[in-house]
């Protein structure tokens, strides 16, 4: 029957688009801008810079993604990376600590901040959005208090520290960190009981509780993971910038969220996931870079990030409706 045939091929097509759509878009973006700016767009310099700077966004996107697996927003990540990079530079310059000690302190602080977020959300039952915004503002306050609002220049940082974000055989090292951490997170989320528990909590927390899952502990765990990732991203950011500016940080929040939410429309449609997030961050970075090379003004970035965020959420809502329609056809 022609009707069922078109129905089936349409379903197969929409299945493919919803799974690999982002990959297709990525290839199209590369092809488009390479054609428009053949000499600069795919130059190793441009790619190296993009991958280095976008590694920070990718790590922050992972930090956003972890609590979001259980349906909780972490709005403190932007301020957190700001504080982490301020402390990483400040503890070396002001307190004369060796960089591994400074990094360790920043990681411990990140763990503690995540713990505070998690406890506020679970034990005190404050909405995650509100709790983490409050905590974020506190962190911003601490950054400015510690620096007195001034930039801390890092003149004599050791090579071992600035080398953290260098190049290895032409490959940006930060991209390798993202690959390793992304791989680990993928294993945890897709191949370990803990990942199943997190997604299950995100789907129906009450039913998860009645399946014997300790929801509060898992939620706290995701915020701690998020805190550690923010701290790591802050340490790497300090190594890239080689100076600490208390106003840096908040501008990372939106791209990180845009990456995670756009990523949730692909690979595992309907849920936040590691490959989708990485792909989305790459799509955003390369298309923005291409637009810049075509001569767009600096403020285009804000239109870009905001537009993508809205588009990403619209797409995922549309995907949800399509899936529900699939339900109708499967049950009748």
């Amino acid at each position: 029957m022609p009707q069922s045939l078109t129905g089936r091929s349409f379903k197969a097509l929409s299945e493919f688009v919803s799974t690999y759509g982002l990959l297709v878009v990525f290839v199209l973006v590369l092809a488009l801008f390479t054609a428009l700016r053949p000499s600069t767009f795919l130059s190793s310099g441009n790619i190296g810079n993009l991958l280095t700077s976008q590694s920070i966004t990718a790590l922050l996107a992972f930090a956003v993604m972890l609590p979001l697996t259980t349906g909780r927003f972490d709005m403190s990540v932007g301020y957190h990376i700001g504080l982490a990079h301020v402390l990483t530079i400040g503890l070396q310059v002001n307190a004369a600590l060796p960089w591994p000690a400074a990094a360790a302190i920043v990681l411990v602080a990140g763990l503690a901040i995540g713990l505070v977020n998690g406890i506020l959300v679970t034990r005190f039952r404050i909405d995650a959005f509100i709790a983490t915004m409050g905590v974020g503002s506190l962190l911003y306050g601490i950054s400015n208090w510690y620096t007195d609002g001034q930039q801390i220049p890092g003149f004599s940082l050791p090579d071992s520290f600035t080398g953290l974000t260098g190049f290895l055989n032409g490959v940006p090292v930060t991209a390798l960190y993202v690959a390793v951490i992304g791989g680990l997170l993928w294993l945890v989320l897709e191949r370990m009981p803990v990942g199943r528990s997190l997604y299950v909590i995100g789907s129906n927390a009450r039913a998860a509780e009645l399946s014997g899952i300790n929801v509060a502990n898992y939620v706290i765990g995701t915020f701690v993971g998020s805190g550690l990732l923010c701290a790591l991203a802050g340490i790497l950011l300090a190594s890239i910038l080689r100076a600490a500016t208390p106003s840096v940080g908040p501008e990372y929040l939106l791209p990180a969220f845009a990456g995670v939410l756009l990523g949730a429309t692909s690979i595992r449609p309907g849920r936040v996931n590691v490959p989708g997030t990485v792909l989305a961050v790459l799509v955003l970075a390369f298309s923005f870079s291409g637009v810049q090379q075509l001569g767009a003004a600096f403020y285009i970035e804000y239109f870009f990030n905001g537009g993508i965020l809205i588009l990403a959420v619209s797409l995922s809502v549309y995907a949800a409706i399509r899936r529900r329609k699939a339900a109708v056809s499967a049950s009748t």
Binding site: R196, V200, S203, R206, A207, A208, I213
Partner: peptide
Amino acid sequence: GESTFPGMSLIENLFPNPL
């Protein structure tokens, strides 16, 4: 409200808590 995990596969609904 308390049993199914909407948006998740039958595998995940059968084994929500592999622990």
